[in-house]
């Protein structure tokens, strides 16, 4: 076992196996756990996945949405226990690996086309890409 494999094996249990197949440009629901004192609740953050980087335990996602005309981006480690679940709502067609240009877009141009290639997502179907 190489050193890199050994280090990755330390987190093998913590890596999530139930993540949907999702790519940059997709609109996703992130079910974020919020702990307030002793209470815990789940908040759903829906937005466009604009960046996905890192490997293994260090993989990070950045999700952007508009709240009250104000752009909001949240960044999570994808394997963080603070994420209860991720769902894919809509597949978007992105031709960049990082959609930072969406920050400068206003109005209708902020939208992404539906993905033309592969399976389109419809509710109830497993979000698997061919």
């Amino acid at each position: 076992m190489s050193t890199q494999q050994l280090i990755e094996s330390l987190n093998a249990d913590a890596l999530k196996t139930d993540l949907p197949v999702m790519g940059v440009g997709d609109t996703i629901n992130v079910h974020a756990r919020i702990i307030e004192g002793a209470k815990e609740r789940v908040q759903i953050f829906q937005g466009v996945l604009i960046s996905r980087k890192g490997r293994g335990m260090n993989e990070m996602i950045c999700v952007r949405r508009i709240v009250d005309n104000q752009g909001v981006e949240r960044i999570w480690p994808i394997n963080s226990p603070m994420i209860a679940k991720i769902e894919v709502v809509r597949r978007g067609d992105a031709r960049r690996s990082k959609l930072y240009y969406l920050r400068d877009r206003v109005g209708k141009s902020r939208r992404l086309r539906d993905q033309r290639r592969g399976l389109k997502h419809t509710a109830g179907q497993p979000t698997v890409q061919k």
Partner: peptide
């Protein structure tokens, strides 16, 4: 010294760790 990675606890706190064999 083998390298570094991160470890999450149940509260979602990420701890940077060095792995030593």
């Amino acid at each position: 010294k083998l390298g570094m990675t991160r470890v999450f606890d149940d509260n979602g706190v990420s701890t940077p760790v060095t792995v030593i064999e």
